[in-house]
Design a protein around this nucleic acid. Structure first.
Length: 212
DNA sequence: ATCCCGAGGG
DNA sequence: CCCTCTGGAT
């Protein structure tokens, strides 16, 4: 796939997705961090259902820490992997207070030092909250990179590096959300909606059905 | 490589 | 029923 094709793909995605932002409910960077930790192997819809109640009662590191693991679990036990996530979030709140004055840090190293925060979550915060031109490679973007052929790679990190290198600079800030939303609603894991896909003719996926 | 682990969709 | 959902820690 060449540079012109990549630019055309992002141009069309930007036209079809006018508001490329996260669908995770949040009113602060701290709330976004908690929501992104919860979103691992879970749907945004399910996360929002839990965080709507959680953030109404506890919207600061101090308030969430005060809930304790068991108290926090009561809000998030409808989400998969909730026990581990509760422990991580409580520990993360403690570190935010002890090391960062209760604020969410804006460096990759400091973010990845927080329990429950790996490269993907750190990249989401850096991009969404702090405007850094980085691309968080989640399950959707990993799938699209390989399926479309825009950034094939065996690991999420390999896909991220190819995307970072090959994405037209003007699309880098929004690339993460353009790709993830396209993956969520059109280029789905199970039965991709190739019939209504705006980049169908530029895609390398071999199993496309007939155009509609 | 394996474990964590609930809800919704096909 | 099986697969998938904005992964991370061990």
């Amino acid at each position: 796939m060449n540079a012109d094709q990549r630019r055309e793909i992002f141009r069309r995605l930007a036209l079809s997705i006018p508001d490329p932002r996260t669908e995770l409910n949040h009113a602060s960077t701290f709330e976004l961090l908690v929501a992104v930790i919860l979103s691992a192997q879970a749907t945004d819809k399910g996360v929002n259902l839990a965080t709507n109640r959680l953030f109404a009662d506890a919207s600061s590191p101090q308030a969430v820490l005060a809930l304790g693991v068991t108290g926090l679990e009561a809000y998030i036990n409808s989400i998969g992997l909730y026990h581990g996530k509760a422990k991580h979030i409580i520990e993360t709140c403690r570190l935010l207070i002890d090391r960062h004055g209760g604020q969410v840090p804006d460096s990759r190293a400091a973010l990845e030092a927080l329990p429950g925060v790996g490269r993907k979550t750190a990249n989401v915060i850096l991009n969404t909250a702090f405007g850094h031109p980085v691309i968080a490679v989640d399950t959707h973007i990993f799938r699209l990179g390989n399926r479309i052929g825009i950034a094939p790679g065996k690991t999420p990190l390999a896909v991220e590096q190819k995307l970072t290198k090959s994405t037209p600079p003007e699309y880098l800030p929004d690339a993460h959300h353009l790709l993830i939303l396209h993956g969520r609603y059109v280029c789905t894991a199970r039965a991709p909606k190739c019939g209504t896909c705006v980049i169908r003719d530029l895609c390398e996926y071999k199993s496309k059905g007939p155009a509609t």
